[in-house]
Design a protein around this nucleic acid. Sequence first.
RNA 1: GCGCUCGUAGCUCAGCUGGAUAGAGCACUGGUUUGCGGUACCAGUGGUCACACGUUCGAAUCGUGUCGGGCGCACCA
Length: 532
Amino acid sequence: MKQRVSALLREKLGREVVLEKPRDRSFGHFATPIAFSLAKELRKSPMLIAEDLASSFKDSSEFSSVESVKGYLNFRLSEDFLAEYATWALENPTAFAKQKKNQKILLEFVSANPTGPLHIGHARGAVYGDTLYRLAKHLGYDITAEYYVNDAGNQIDLLGLSIQLYARENILSEIDVEYPESYYRGEYLKDLANGAKEHFGIEILSDVSRQKELAMWAKDKVMEIVVDSLANTNIHFDTFVNESGLYSDWDRVMKKMGDNVYEKENKLWIKSKSKGDDHDRVVVRDDGRPTYLAGDIVYHNQKFERGYDHYINIWGADHHGYIPRVNAAIDFLGYDSSKLEVLLAQMVSLLKDGEPYKMSKRAGNVILMSDIVDEIGSDALRFIFASKKSDTALEFDLAEFKKQDSSNPIFYIQYAHARIQTLLSKATVSREDIENANLKNLGENADTLLFDALLLPEIVEDAFSSRQVQKLPEYLKSLAASLHKFYYDVRMIGTEDEAKLLKLLLVVALSIKTGLSLMGIEAKDRMLKEEE
RNA sequence: GCGCUCGUAGCUCAGCUGGAUAGAGCACUGGUUUGCGGUACCAGUGGUCACACGUUCGAAUCGUGUCGGGCGCACCA
């Protein structure tokens, strides 16, 4: 709709026009302050310009009125235009708000180390990434969701060690097991230790020389746990790339970097400082082991060789200092680093009884994503995280998070959808009558609701292109509110307008359902009643 | 110290490519059924948009500075 209106304006004025939502709906559907910016050039008062423009739209069929108010230009779409659009949407529900973009995007997110289950901090990036993915898919982008598995390096050795330590104390009942500070703890080690015992035999639990073997087996098991808990939240990946599989390409990639790599102190460095990084960075240590960055260089080379138009990485905010060196490496490889967009998901900090609650994988007191999902459900979790702007640090109380009442708007939205289904089931007219009804002369309230429901395509486009996923839940909340209000203001069943009013509700339901599905949430047809 | 980022109602957060009286939910107060699930609706209380200066016809929004919070400043991932 908005596109249509801007196109008309562009034609008329020969320039791009900023369209905005009027503060008050009585002003119309769209508004523009264009007259203010024209005032200077034309040396006329904004009021006069707006008047002139308004009268020039008198004959257009898209608008029922175009008015100038205090220099603003307010547009009201015609009933014909809205009715036609709504009818089209109902006839093509799967095409509603869809587009066909011509761009191949690689989206990498979560990419948590396979050393333990996902905790609540990972959930934020996971929800954010998956929502972006769904939006992009709907908008017709050719997008791939990828998980980078860091299955090489110290943390994997540590996993093997941690399993053995757990087993020695709890399965082999050794006393005086000494724990280094950096080992992992947590319930999941128990399952891994028992699983290893079954798979390899009990000896592997105490044989230090087999730590590596144990770790390589365990990290795959951990990945199964991770994938499983993501799936429980409706998050799926198209591809997984293992760090350990990338190093066979090492020599070729280094050659590609040319003289941007040099040797010093028996280590290998890249000249990232010349690209704005604080220092040059080590990629291979003097004992020959590659650093974390080494893996990322090979990985990003592989990404760019696969030939996408655009790359998005979602990282935790604590990795932001890492961006310059990765960009430097991409440039050195001969690719355009501006094609890589890094989105940072800010930290999630927890409060428990009003006190900051420190999670640490190594202390074993992490709040697992799967625990929260068990407790409040995937829908509520997704809604909460998708509602927050990703670049704001988030703080919440654990108790608050567990509440399942109206303080969580997902229930409010679901209720709106369920309410519509109830009304439809009580209809005294046939489904066919409803679908064929003419959406005209609905009255002001209904007209407003219809317009709100048809706004979804703009929201989806905006939410994705600005990477501001929270715009979708915001919209759904306000649409649900409009619906609830409408329900109280207007009686539908049994009235002579029943068919067209229910058709209007079908449009609202379509928007809610489509919007929720873009957040990985399924719209409910009925709410479970409390008590029996 | 340097870099990134945030600072909007008691709380959790929207609004930020400058534009019409600063929004929502929660909390608090008071109301709403002869009407389709009251898990809802309506109304009210509550704001120097951290502070200062600047740009502008116009600033929560842009710029500079100050203060405050978070994160980073590894050959850890």
